[in-house]
Amino acid sequence: MRHERRIQVGPVGFRIGSDWAAPLAALDRLYAGYPEPAIADFTVRLEAPRPWRRWLRPKVHIGGDYMLPDAAPLSLAHGLLAAEMGMNLQMALGQRRYLLLHASGVEKGGRALLMTGLSGAGKSTLAALLGECGWRLLGDEFALVDCDSGALHPFPRAVSLKNAAVDLFDDVDPGRLGPLLADTPKGTIRHLRPNDDAIARMEETAMPALLLFPRFGHAAEIREVGQGEAFVRLTQASTNYVALEERGFEALARLIRTVPVRAVDYPDTESAVEAVERLCEDLA
């Protein structure tokens, strides 16, 4: 393709090709400092759905090794988002080496905290906030569980801050922020590069020590969650649990058996960070 950029995120290498220079220039700035893989696990293609769409009201179709048949193209102004969605899509549809959980993760002292929940529950924002105050960010979107060892492989791609969460990161180094993307299909989005520590240590795994189901917008409350419920919720949060067959089952069962699980309701982000820190001290 005309333009190419390669990015290594944790154990996964991406090759991103594009018909336009702009999306890859934005990707280049956002992923400054990331290694480049010699052999890519996945290929992403940002291409014009029709030849004239390269110039005339340009549209970006998200292609690659794995594609959704009827995904709507994005405007070129949202090309960076298209690249991010393309990488996510490869993971969600093609990842078979690790048990993939739709979960965020942070680590401190070799012990990892996993957070999962429905979209809008705040797992991504919480992980990003913890990543700015002494925790190492493992990933804001996908947690990669090693089926053999049970360890978490970091996948510290850029954090996707959405809508109100964008304002919470006003005081980080502006060089770590991507452009403000308004009116995307998911609202306003701004990407945040994890801090240098998270990137430098992206090959360093961590053992899970606590699993949380956070929920934003409710009165502060912490509840225990039974193993059965936690297991079923994680099967729903995994994109490849079925495809991994017995290995996936064993990995998930081990995770649920070995870590405490709590549901955390929180009214605002400060109290959530506080509650999570306290829980970790008590349980992990």
Partner: peptide, 18 residues
């Protein structure tokens, strides 16, 4: 094969088994 290639191919074989 290099480790990376071996990993990718092993995952593809597991996927085909499924």
């Amino acid at each position: 094969q290099s480790d990376k290639v071996a990993e990718l191919l092993a995952a593809a074989r597991a996927s085909a088994d499924h």
